[in-house]
C-alpha cells in the first residue's frame, strides 16, 4: 500500500507535529477537517486518503471536537503522549490567542456590512473546500462497495434532514458495520 510506505518513511518529529497543527489551527476557518487533510495528506504525506478517512471516522464518533481528537490520535501515533500534547498545543495556541483579540474588537466591526459580505464570501469558499475535500477522499475509497450508500445516507440524514447527530450516528454505525462485514465475506 502506498499509504503505509509513505507512513514508514515519514515519522514526524514533535516539532513537525506542533508546526503542522499550528498551521491547521491558523488556517482552519469554519472547516478545520479539510485543512487537516490538506496538510497531513497533501503537504506532509504522513497519511494516505484511506488511512485519513478511517482516522477521521474514529475522531468523529468519539466525543469532543473532531480536530482535537485528530491531533491527539495523530500525535500519539507518531510520538506518544508528548506528541499528542505537541499537536494539541499547536492546534489551539493561535486560535485561543486570536479569540481574545477578536472578542474585544468584534462589537466594533460586527456592524460593518463590507466585512460581513467578505466573511460570507469566505464561508461560501470554505463550504466548497469541505465538499471538494470529501470528494477527493471519496474518490480514493469508493471502490469499497459499502462506501457510497453509507456516505449518501449519512449526508442526507445530517446534511439534508438535519436529524440530531448522536442518535443518527448510533443507528448508522451498526448498519455500516453490518454492510462492511457482509461485503467482505462475499469477497472472501
Amino acid at each position: 500500500m502506498m499509504a503505509s510506505t509513505a507512513q514508514a518513511s515519514k515519522i514526524p518529529s514533535r516539532v513537525a507535529l506542533f508546526l503542522a497543527f499550528l498551521k491547521i489551527g491558523l488556517l482552519g476557518f469554519g472547516g478545520v477537517a479539510a485543512w487537516v487533510r490538506r496538510i497531513v495528506v497533501e503537504e506532509r504525506h504522513w497519511l494516505g486518503d484511506r488511512e485519513f478517512s478511517e482516522l477521521l471516522g474514529i475522531a468523529n464518533v468519539l466525543p469532543g471536537a473532531n480536530t482535537v481528537n485528530m491531533a491527539i490520535l495523530l500525535g500519539d501515533r507518531y510520538r506518544g503522549l508528548t506528541g499528542a500534547l505537541a499537536a494539541l498545543t499547536g492546534l489551539l495556541a493561535m486560535p485561543l490567542t486570536i479569540l481574545l483579540g477578536v472578542a474585544s474588537l468584534y462589537d466594533h466591526f460586527a456592524t460593518m456590512p463590507a466585512l460581513n459580505n467578505a466573511l460570507s464570501g469566505a464561508a461560501a469558499a470554505t463550504a466548497g473546500l469541505i465538499i471538494g475535500t470529501a470528494t477527493k477522499i471519496l474518490r480514493s475509497i469508493w471502490p469499497d462497495a459499502h462506501v457510497l450508500p453509507i456516505a449518501s445516507v449519512v449526508f442526507l440524514a445530517i446534511g439534508y434532514f438535519r436529524f440530531p447527530f448522536a442518535p443518527t450516528i448510533a443507528c448508522l454505525v451498526p448498519i455500516s458495520l453490518a454492510a462492511t462485514v457482509l461485503l467482505s465475506r462475499r469477497k472472501a
Binding site: 478517512s53 470529501a134 477522499i137 453509507i150 449519512v154 445530517i158 446534511g159 454505525v173 455500516s176
Partner: peptide
C-alpha cells in the same frame, strides 16, 4: 472500514 464512509458523509453534510 465501517467508520470511513461515515466520516466522508459527514464532511459532505
Amino acid at each position: 472500514k465501517a467508520l470511513a464512509p461515515i466520516a466522508v458523509g459527514l464532511l459532505f453534510a
